[in-house]
Design a protein around this nucleic acid. Structure first.
Lengths: 212, 212
DNA sequence: AGTCAATGGTTTGCTTGCAACTTACGCCGG
DNA sequence: CCGGCGTAAGTTGCAAGCAAACCATTGACT
């Protein structure tokens, strides 16, 4: 059997998850008919999903066929440059526009996440939720969309910076600083705190890359 | 006759241009079979083009069918907030990374464009080229891509701010200020100059909207 | 007369099949 | 033995057709 037919997700989501889980790694070639067999649908929905993923730069063309995009060192740096600016903007706008309820949820998240220290997977999920919440608190749909795109591209990186020893605790402290700034409606402080946070994460990731 | 068959562009480009030219206006419903007839191809490539446009937020779903997205006042403000930050970042990075050749081309563009004052269409094209050049001079592929997306969304706005009386000259002065800052490798000045430029353009556009 | 249901037409989503192109392998010649 | 060319297999791009969901209009029943 190929796959449980009880999948109610569309081809796009299925392929995206497969990339996320590392089933398809950067450089792998994606063949329409293979995916069609694998997911039990015809080539057409697969084609549409592949095109969407291509426009989001998760796939790239090598001649006529599509391969999973890969990030070299330069592209990683470029991605982080854009990310830190956009996340900084999100923090600034969140400090300006977040509702009291959103601020309280952010504070709760940071407090609750302390329980996850040591659990790299849990922390990674919690981290995504935290940043997503800040994006939403900016109340800027375009920004949310652009940041979604940035985060999707980050799926092309194998490991998360939270895998580094001790990074979890430090990251949580940084999260707390961000929330504190937003709570105080201090836009500049929120911007700086988030930018520094991303900067630190990038540094940590660089060290990880150098280890291999 | 439907359309000259000598079209060598793909469905995506054709539909995008049609939106750009205002053939399809915000709110218009796009029916696959209509487009297929119009461009003389089958529904399949049309579907793929529509999906790409949807992922870029140029189209949006209304129930089951696709309509051209429209920007209300809030979304316009949100778009400009993101744009000014990204363009500012591009200017900063251009000041840091532009080659001497790129700087010279930018300077030439500003000088040459003085001849276009009064020609709103020509200025609009020249303006797009100028900003695109700055994006490229940032030497950051992700940033270029994100800014492409922003500029595509701007196709949903009917008029350009350069249509306003006297805006052309002022815009050129602002362009010169940006180039001067980049030439001097002054990152902060370039960032500020471009941010102010976008800010001014937004103001001008707001006045235009209020006129109707 | 009003409301609900049924039916016809429209539009989307998917499958299947075909044609064009690319790539790779093998064969032949140097 | 190596290189170039031809052919065959594989893969993508496109078209046409079919089934299912949706919309609206009309008709029947309360």
């Amino acid at each position: 059997m190929t796959h449980p037919r009880t999948q109610n997700k569309d081809a796009y989501t299925l392929i995206l998850e497969a990339i996320d889980l590392g089933v398809y790694k950067p450089g792998d070639r994606l063949v329409e008919s293979d995916l069609a067999d694998r997911f039990g649908v015809s080539r057409t929905p697969i084609r549409e999903a592949l095109q969407r993923l291509e426009t989001q730069s998760l796939l790239t063309r090598d001649g006529r066929s599509l391969i999973v995009a890969s990030l070299d060192h330069n592209q990683l740096a470029e991605l982080y440059a854009v990310r830190s600016e956009l996340e900084g903007l999100a923090a600034r706008l969140a400090a300006r526009h977040a509702t009291q309820e959103e601020v309280r949820v952010l504070q709760e998240m940071v407090s609750d996440d302390r329980a996850l220290i040591g659990d790299a997977n849990g922390l990674a999920r919690a981290n995504r939720r935290f940043h997503k919440m800040i994006h939403l608190a900016s109340h800027n749909r375009f920004l949310v969309q652009q940041l979604d795109m940035v985060h999707r591209s980050m799926a092309l990186m194998a490991t998360t910076s939270l895998a580094a020893e001790g990074r979890g605790e430090v990251a949580l402290q940084e999260h707390q600083a961000i929330v504190t700034a937003i709570k105080a409606r201090n836009e500049d402080a929120a911007y700086d705190a988030l930018k520094r946070h991303i900067s630190k994460a990038f540094e940590t990731r660089l060290k990880l890359s150098a280890d291999r």
